[in-house]
Design a protein around this nucleic acid. Structure first.
Lengths: 201, 201
DNA sequence: CCTACCGATCGGTAGG
DNA sequence: CCTACCGATCGGTAGG
């Protein structure tokens, strides 16, 4: 019988993941050495290679887990039966809440994704595209004209504007600031619902 | 009389700057060696240190020049006499045109700013704040309620949404795509003018 | 005493 | 689960 992995193997892996995400978020992937990472996690550098094949695999795991969790939370919050503006609000709220709960993971996804080898990047972009498609559908429900085959399809750029508004928030949004995350979700949802409603008229 | 620098000193410096910006944009600051940079510029690595004290100084010069040029172009395009929506449109158009003309510089500003030492970062953030303030003023002119002292000031988050929409565009916008830069400026301006008009009602 | 510029190599540190 | 190392490459500087 083959030897099995230690019962706490996955637990330790996730712990390493979180330590790495925090360091990568604070100092950048290239400026975080495996030795630093080991020190911060309280293990030897060599032991890190017991859990991850190399430094890239650690980065990939961080970004992939974050995006899979994000997609799951967004799908759970989606309610296609709602009126389009409320559905949009629900999706935006789910994304912003997910960002709060994985601040470091989110920042690493944004800043370090292009440090990954091309094959790993492609796997990540697949998940990203599914998430983007869900928001695009919610925006199109607010104003079907966005999908008209005119001289320029508006749905993609509008969706990208929305992701700009959500994904940039880590640069300035503070949970101890005057605006709550839910209030910011309300604001973005209203801004885009009204803005999108006025387009292509 | 003190000896002067070579007549083409500044020209060569700017040329190095552009070569460095392209490499930093494509491969990242930490993954571009001074040796690569020298090779791409057709000079020895040692000569780079004749023009820049060190690698950080090169990055600082790239980001600072870009932001100063951006601010100048935005100020030149500003027309406080226009109707608020048209003024907003003029500012957004100026920014997006500036981004096109300095694609690499813009990408470096976004991705590598936090690699700079803290003192250099502070100098950069000063310029950024001035640019942000100009867009905030234009948004406030569209809907003065944004500045109301309610439970949460709306002007800052709305301004950040707008910067998200503009600054993320380098990730997906293609000048050879179906949507022109001016059409995208129209779209963003309409989206925010209508969206902001509907807020706080 | 200045600038412009090169071939070669420095001390340290990276990921593994 | 560690210490001891490696091949390679880094940013920066020497003499001339």
């Amino acid at each position: 019988m083959a030897r099995v992995r230690a019962a706490d193997y996955d637990d330790k892996r996730v712990k390493l993941l979180m330590v790495a995400a925090r360091l990568f978020a604070r100092n950048g992937f290239d400026r975080t050495s495996m030795a630093q990472l080991g020190e911060a996690a309280g293990v030897s550098k060599a032991l890190l290679y017991h859990y991850y094949e190399n430094k890239d695999a650690l980065l990939f795991d961080i970004v992939e887990r974050h995006l899979c969790a994000l997609e799951a939370q967004i799908l759970a919050a989606d309610a296609p039966g709602l009126a389009p503006p409320e559905r949009l609000r629900a999706l935006i709220g789910a994304a912003l809440r997910a960002y709060r709960d994985s601040d470091a993971l989110h920042k690493v996804q944004i800043n370090e994704l292009d440090k990954l080898p091309a094959t790993h990047q492609r796997a990540i972009r697949k998940i990203q595209r599914r998430i983007v498609a869900l928001f695009a559908a919610a925006l199109a429900a607010v104003n079907p004209h966005l999908q008209d085959k005119g001289e320029a399809a508006l749905l993609k750029p509008v969706t990208m504007c929305l992701f700009g508004a959500m994904n940039w928030s880590y640069l300035w949004f503070r949970d101890d600031g005057p605006l709550s995350r839910e209030a910011y979700a309300d604001l973005v949802a209203q801004l885009f619902a009204a803005g999108v409603g006025a387009l292509a008229d």
